[in-house]
Structure formats: structure tokens, C-alpha cells
């Protein structure tokens, strides 16, 4: 009887922990709201999202995050343009073309990249990438949106490559054999049969890669120059949403307008990542059916 009681308690505990992930997602969102919504007593949501100047410590504070949104968008767009073709191509090579030994090495390389802390990549970017960009384009500084885009494209690779590779791998063998039987070359089979069949998985890979890029903080902060102005080209310094929080929260006084505004940025980031993840998940599940 004692054993039954013990098991009853354990099983209840298991059920509670099973719900833990839902609990934490909700709690994270609630605490962001709790600290962030207060900013809308000072600015309207519209002025917050589309205000053109971000001077949080001037008096009165100007809390428009449009420059930051533009910064994030520009860097993300640049990263997407670089990473999507290269990432998908790399996934195709690993999944379809590489001989099995090479495949293991390449996969290990990609996994290794995923393991490198972003602050280390930021540091390496500062000492290698940034001077290159500066010298190639003859700029006063190499801390630009372009440097950020290149680094972020690189950081999105593990996500894009591994998920796209899974998607290609899960295309039924019979599709491929059928195409071969009709006399298609390997390449024709890949781009006429495999890619369309894996398309929703690849789309999910791209979305999750972009999600990773938007949320990335340290490397971006270290190499994009952190100027909170609306950028006009990739060769200017920019500041992203994430970098703003990371750089300024240390100085913001708890309970100040600045503090609330930074949490409001957190809400924006949370909603973006939520939307991306839910959509990507839908694509992945469509694949499964």
C-alpha cells in the first residue's frame, strides 16, 4: 500500500512536470507584459512601433523603435539572402551527393558550428570580418549591417542545413527510384522531384533559420556598430532590437520609462519568435501527414 501511495505521488509529479513547458511559455510572456505594457502609458503603441527616434535617456524620452526594427530587418534580410541559397545547397550536398564518410565529417562540422558560443563568433567577427569589410569597401568603420548579415548568415547555417537535410532525407525512396527509372539524371531528380517533395520541410528550415537570426544578440551587438538610426544601406552601422536590450538594460533603472520600453521590445521579439515557430511547426507537421 505504501508503494502505491509513493507511485501515486510520482505519477502526479510527472504530470505536473509534463505541463512545465506550457507553464514557462505563459510565465515568460506574462512577465514581459507585466514589465513592458507600462510603456504604453507614455507612448501609444503606434508611436512606439513607428516612432523614428530612439533617445531613451533624453528628457523627455523619445521611445520610437522604428530605427531598431529597420536595423533588425535589414540585417535579417541580408542574412537571409546569403544563408538561404548556401544553406539549402549545403543541405542538398550533404543529403544527396556526399559519400557517406564525407557526409559524417560535414555533419560534424555543421554541428561544431552550432556549438560555438555566439560571443566567441562575435569576437572572431570583430577581429577578422570587420577589418575585411572596412578595407574592401573603404569605409570609416567595418562595424556595419553587412558584417552583421554575413555573421548571422553563418550562424543560421546549422539550423537551416540540419532541418532541410532531414526534410530531404524523409522524402520516400520510391520517388527517387521512380525518377531514376524514367531516365532522369541525379541532378534532375534532385531539383524536379526531391526539392518539391521536401519543400514544406525546407520552408520550415528557412523560417527557423530566420528566427535564429532575429533572436541572435551577442554577435550582432559586437559587430554592427550599434547606431540607432534608420539605415539607408548595408554599409552603415545599425542597431537591432536584441542588441538594444542587451546594451541598454544594464544602465536602465528598474521601473523607469527606459526599463519599460526595453521590456516592450522584448514583447515584440517574443511575438515574432512565437509566430515564426508556430508557422514553422505547422509546415513540419504538414510534411508528416
Amino acid at each position: 500500500m505504501f508503494r502505491k501511495a509513493k507511485e501515486f505521488i510520482i505519477e502526479k509529479l510527472i504530470q505536473v512536470c509534463g505541463l512545465a513547458s506550457i507553464f514557462f511559455v505563459v510565465v515568460i510572456f506574462l512577465f514581459l507584459l507585466k514589465e513592458g505594457l507600462a510603456v504604453f502609458k507614455i507612448v501609444t503603441p503606434l508611436n512606439f512601433l513607428f516612432g523614428k527616434s530612439w533617445y531613451p535617456i533624453s528628457d523627455p524620452a523619445q521611445l520610437g523603435i522604428l530605427p531598431l526594427i529597420c536595423g533588425s530587418l535589414l540585417v535579417t534580410l541580408g542574412a537571409a539572402i546569403i544563408s538561404i541559397p548556401i544553406g539549402v545547397a549545403c543541405a542538398i550536398y550533404i543529403a544527396e551527393i556526399a559519400p557517406s564518410k564525407t557526409k559524417e565529417v560535414l555533419k560534424a562540422g555543421v554541428e561544431l558550428l552550432a556549438a560555438i558560443p555566439s560571443v566567441v563568433l562575435g569576437f572572431i567577427g570583430m577581429v577578422t570580418l570587420v577589418p575585411w569589410v572596412k578595407n574592401i569597401f573603404h569605409l570609416p568603420t567595418g562595424l556595419t549591417a553587412l558584417s552583421g548579415s554575413i555573421m548571422l548568415a553563418f550562424m543560421a547555417m546549422p539550423t537551416i542545413v540540419s532541418i532541410a537535410e532531414d526534410a530531404l532525407y524523409s522524402v520516400p525512396k520510391s520517388y527517387k527510384e521512380g525518377a531514376f527509372a524514367l531516365g532522369a539524371t541525379h541532378w534532375q531528380t534532385i531539383h524536379r522531384v526531391m526539392l518539391p517533395a521536401a519543400s514544406s520541410g525546407i520552408l520550415a528550415a528557412v523560417m527557423l533559420g530566420i528566427g535564429r537570426v532575429i533572436g541572435e544578440t551577442m554577435a550582432v551587438m559586437m559587430i554592427t556598430g550599434n547606431a540607432a538610426v534608420i539605415p539607408h544601406s548595408l554599409l552603415q552601422p545599425v542597431r537591432t532590437l536584441t542588441a538594444t536590450i542587451a546594451a541598454e538594460m544594464g544602465e536602465a533603472v528598474v521601473g523607469s520609462e527606459h526599463y519599460f520600453a526595453l521590456f516592450a521590445i522584448g514583447i515584440v521579439l517574443f511575438i515574432i519568435s512565437f509566430a515564426i515557430n508556430v508557422t514553422a511547426d505547422l509546415f513540419l507537421h504538414r510534411e508528416n501527414r
Binding site: S21, F24, V25, V27, I28, F31, L32, E35, S118, L208, G211, I214, G215, E216, T217, T242, I245, A246, M249, L262, F263, G266, L269, F270, S273, F274, I276, N277, V278
Partner: peptide, 13 residues
Amino acid sequence: NLAGVPSVVYGLF
């Protein structure tokens, strides 16, 4: 979603 929340948002939280 928990896996996708940006790390800096974890910091805020």
C-alpha cells in the same frame, strides 16, 4: 517555442 525564444528575452524574463 521555448526553444525559439531569443536568448536576450530569457535575460529580460
